[in-house]
Design a protein around this nucleic acid. Structure first.
Length: 104
DNA sequence: CAGATAGGAATGA
DNA sequence: TCATTCCTATCTG
């Protein structure tokens, strides 16, 4: 299984109202966070893949191709994700998927 | 090979 | 907490 497919599969484990981080995905994939960003940026199916549920490790939004970060934030808010006054995702919405796999 | 990226971690204040 | 600095994997030319 190539890393791109695996990344997509992992994203499907993140339910609406939650997000994960580039670093967390990168640890599972065995690559770098930047490479994960690459995978998303060159995403052929940005609608099928919920790539808006991936944010930076410091809980900043990160980038988004389809309309910019503003659109990304709207999508997350629609799913129930809350932001603080500085535009960061609140902690209770964050799922570190690599830790999830370790505990499970 | 050189440059650019939807990032991260260590460091210092 | 913030800004600075350096690092990484992958893509493009």
């Amino acid at each position: 299984m190539d890393k791109r497919s695996l990344a997509y599969t992992l994203l499907q484990l993140i339910p609406p109202g939650y997000v994960t981080t580039y670093a967390s995905l990168a640890r599972v994939l065995g690559t770098s966070p930047r490479a994960v960003g690459r995978l998303m940026a060159s995403n052929p199916d940005p609608v099928i893949v919920p790539c808006h549920r991936v944010v930076k490790s410091n809980l900043d939004l990160g980038g988004y191709s389809m309309g910019g970060p503003m659109v990304k934030r709207r999508l997350l808010e629609l799913e129930g994700v809350e932001f603080d006054s500085r535009g960061r995702v609140k902690r209770r919405h964050v799922i570190l998927i690599d830790k999830l796999l370790l505990e499970g």
